[in-house]
Simulated assay, not measured.
Amino acid sequence: MISNKAKYAFRALLAVASAPEGESLTSAEIARRNSIPHKFLEQILLDLKKAGILDSRRGKSGGYVMLRPADTISFGEVLRLFEGPLAPLPCLSRQSYRKCEDCESEVRCEIRREFGRAYEASRQVLDSRTIADALRDGASIPEIRHDDRLAG
């Protein structure tokens, strides 16, 4: 599961990206519209600004604007910013690779192989889908089936 911090970052990005061109949103507006605790949101917005994704403007018409186009910001990029590496095992990570301490052979490891398949599939989706894609496809949200036997 993703943290609230990451979820709120996505909500904030979607709100700012959906604002009319050249229009900024204040942190208070973003917080109110998206049910995000304002103090928590301020830290998230600062992280997005430090990462070069958002910019802030001062003054009467101040607030946050997109620094980069929404179609250049992938869900994977934002998720890594707030959650760190996405790989479920250290031996699968591209950025933070390390061999599992108890591993005899990565080539023969069934656990690595199966989690590698799942990780590669999710990584491809997260790295190919952008904030702009989510805004454009918002009307056609796929239904998510809940299976009580698998709930964790």
Results as ranks from 00 to 15, higher is better:
Asn4Ile: 00
Phe10Ala: 07
Ala12Trp: 07
Leu13Ile: 04
Ala17Asn: 09
Ala17Phe: 12
Ala19Gln: 10
Ala19Lys: 09
Glu23Ser: 13
Ser24Trp: 14
Glu29Tyr: 08
Glu29Leu: 06
Asn34Ser: 00
Ser35Leu: 05
Ser35Phe: 15
Ile36Gln: 06
His38Met: 13
His38Arg: 08
His38Ile: 10
His38Ala: 03
Leu46Glu: 11
Leu46His: 12
Lys50Pro: 03
Lys50Met: 15
Gly52Lys: 10
Ile53Arg: 02
Ser56Glu: 06
Arg57Ile: 10
Lys60Asp: 01
Gly63His: 12
Val65His: 02
Val65Phe: 09
Met66Thr: 05
Ile73Cys: 02
Ser74Phe: 08
Phe75Ser: 05
Glu77Arg: 09
Glu77Asn: 12
Val78Ser: 10
Arg80Ile: 06
Glu83Ala: 03
Leu86Ala: 01
Pro88Gln: 01
Pro88Arg: 05
Cys91Ser: 09
Arg94Gly: 13
Arg94Pro: 04
Ser96Leu: 06
Ser96Gln: 12
Lys99Thr: 03
Glu101Lys: 00
Asp102Lys: 00
Cys103Leu: 00
Cys103Ile: 00
Glu104Tyr: 12
Cys109Asn: 14
Arg112Asn: 01
Arg113Ala: 07
Gly116Asp: 11
Arg117Glu: 06
Ala118Tyr: 12
Tyr119Leu: 00
Glu120Phe: 11
Ser128Thr: 12
Ser128Trp: 15
Ala134Leu: 05
Leu135Ser: 03
Leu135His: 05
Arg136Asp: 07
Gly138Arg: 13
Ser140Thr: 13
Ile144Leu: 07
Asp147Glu: 15
Asp148Gly: 10
